[in-house]
């Protein structure tokens, strides 16, 4: 409980600094209250948020929403077009597309969120250390980020996944371990900016250990930019997972993911004659990526302390 208070205070400090000259009678409203108000007013962002929430709910309740099991084969309907029984048709072995799509949402969203959580943990830790300690630790960490950033992303992801073996877990691992440099840079910049400020000196004078100063007093200030980067990162991770699975090097069948549901469409026959097989999965990827990007844009605007209400 106490920790949370410190985090919020940390933010107030920053936001007040940004607009200290404004004597706003509504000063009492909390930083987060303002952020939420701004976000909700941002029409595209709010729409994106609602769509995203629906997708997440659909993923959570997939087993109850699905008309059929994701692996159940209907021996009377192989590659059948949409009908009352199968609203989006069936694939070439008679599995219901709608049910597979709903279950695939779980996989694809989990990969997006899981790999970004990993990104953020590694990025925050290394960025914090690099910024706070400086010197050799800083140089080493920054060289590593530059190395990772200088490889063509998909190529290195492909090679690593093929070596570890394609699986859901390995896809999350590889995407998570290659995506952190950006977060690391953001956190480092914020820590560098703040570490000479009075509140840090005060904390040091109070005898608070470095580790605690870093994690409780400095890192939380990097939360707004990290949240925005993580949001955009989730969309990128979802697309990367879909691309890998599309090539057959991501989530392995029979488990459905949005990407591997499009794999069959690489054959011209399927592409032309069974659009219900690949179109919905592709559209879902686009819708998910768009909504997440809108949410990211909205968050960036809403969290910007320089903007007044």
């Amino acid at each position: 409980m106490q920790a949370k208070q410190v985090i919020i205070d940390g933010h107030r400090q920053v936001s007040r600094q940004g607009q200290s000259e404004v004597a706003d009678p509504r000063e009492a409203r909390s930083y987060w209250g303002i952020v939420v108000r701004r976000f909700v007013r941002h029409k595209l962002a709010f729409t994106g948020f609602v769509i995203l929430a629906l997708l997440v709910l659909a993923a959570i309740f997939a087993p109850w929403l699905s008309p059929h099991g994701p692996y159940d084969m209907d021996i009377e309907a192989f590659g059948a077009p949409p009908s009352w029984n199968h609203p989006l048709g069936t694939d070439s072995v008679g599995r219901d597309i709608l049910s597979r799509l709903l279950h695939a949402s779980r996989v694809s969203l989990a990969v997006g969120i899981g790999s970004v959580l990993l990104n953020v943990s590694v990025g925050v830790l290394l960025g914090g250390i690099a910024g706070y300690l400086g010197g050799l630790a800083d140089s080493i960490i920054m060289r590593i980020t530059e190395m990772i950033l200088s490889f063509p992303p998909l190529m290195i992801i492909l090679v690593l996944v093929s070596i570890l073996g394609p699986s859901l877990f390995n896809v999350v691992l590889v995407l998570g371990l290659l995506g952190w440099p950006q977060i690391c840079r953001l956190v480092r910049a914020e820590v560098l900016r703040l570490k000479e400020m009075e509140f840090v000196t005060a904390a040091k004078a109070l005898g608070i250990p470095d580790q605690r100063i870093l994690l409780r007093h400095l890192v939380p200030n990097a939360f707004p930019p990290v949240l925005v980067a993580a949001t955009f990162g989730t969309a990128q991770a979802i697309i990367a997972e879909a691309s890998l699975s599309f090539l057959g090097m991501g989530v392995q069948p029979p488990t459905a993911s949005w990407g591997n549901m499009l794999t069959d469409a690489q054959s011209i026959g399927v592409l032309g004659s069974m659009p219900w097989l690949w179109l919905p999965a592709g559209l879902l990827i686009v819708v998910a990526a768009l909504s997440i990007n809108f949410v990211g844009d909205g968050l960036r605007d809403a969290l910007d302390p320089r903007l007044k209400e």
Partner: peptide, 29 residues
């Protein structure tokens, strides 16, 4: 700008092949 971030190449590729080579037969697939 949004197309760049939200449209995976495999999907836009498939849609283009579907529309321009299978439906209209303007370009090879």
């Amino acid at each position: 700008g949004l197309a760049g971030v939200a449209l995976p190449t495999f999907f836009s590729g498939l849609v283009f092949i579907y529309v321009f080579s299978l439906k209209f037969d303007w370009f090879p697939s």
